[in-house]
């Protein structure tokens, strides 16, 4: 035998509900705004690469200028190689990159820039000396450059930017030969 009893359920006050919802919506808006602000603009294939600047390692400057801005390289093909001293596949392509740089450096039409991704200054210095790298190199402070270039997998990754500052080719992983690097550059020129 059951008896139905009416239990009066006390609801949450309307003003409390409003305050809670306003707080939650405000918090989500704040998080969204913060994430959007923290995010760098990203490059996409066949799109202009957002401008960025780098401060070169001492001894690895381009034409004796201590820093570079991407927009300064308009009119030249820019090859940006992202590497790290702790990355074994980077060692595989380092001699090829240097050899390719030797082919283009006098022409002043193609510029190579190495960007050391999350590396120590000592590690970077050892690596550059080990492979006799002579093209300009700079650290990727706070991973800003790899973020702007939309690094996809890891290191090494190489980005080919044409004379108008448009990203034309992305090589993920190490190059197999100097010829492979030349082919990509010739395709852009």
């Amino acid at each position: 035998m059951t008896e139905q009893t009416n239990i009066e359920k006390k609801g949450v006050a309307l003003w409390v509900q409003i305050v809670v919802w306003v707080f939650i919506v405000g918090l989500l808006a704040l998080v969204g705004f913060g994430l959007n602000k923290a995010r760098n603009p990203m490059a996409a294939l066949n799109e202009p690469v957002p401008d960025f600047d780098l401060v070169y390692y001492e001894g690895y400057e381009y034409k004796d200028t201590p820093q570079m801005k991407l927009s300064d390289f308009r009119g030249k093909v820019l090859v940006v190689n992202i590497w790290a001293s702790w990355c074994k596949p980077c060692e595989q392509e380092a001699p090829d990159l240097e050899e390719a740089w030797q082919l283009y450096k006098d022409g002043d039409d193609v510029v190579f820039v190495g960007v050391a991704y999350v590396d120590t200054p000592a590690g970077s210095s050892q690596y550059l000396k080990k492979f006799n790298i002579t093209f300009p190199n700079a650290p990727d402070l706070q991973s800003n450059i790899s973020s702007i270039l939309n690094r996809q997998m890891g290191v090494p990754e190489t980005y080919f930017i044409d004379r108008e500052g448009i990203l034309r080719h992305v090589k993920i992983g190490p190059f197999g030969s100097v010829n492979e690097i030349q082919k990509v550059i010739e395709g852009i020129q």
Binding site: W86, D119, T120, P121, G123
Partner: peptide
């Protein structure tokens, strides 16, 4: 345990 971390500890 990576080599990279060893470098950072040395740093």
């Amino acid at each position: 345990p990576t080599d990279a971390c060893k470098e950072w500890r040395e740093q």
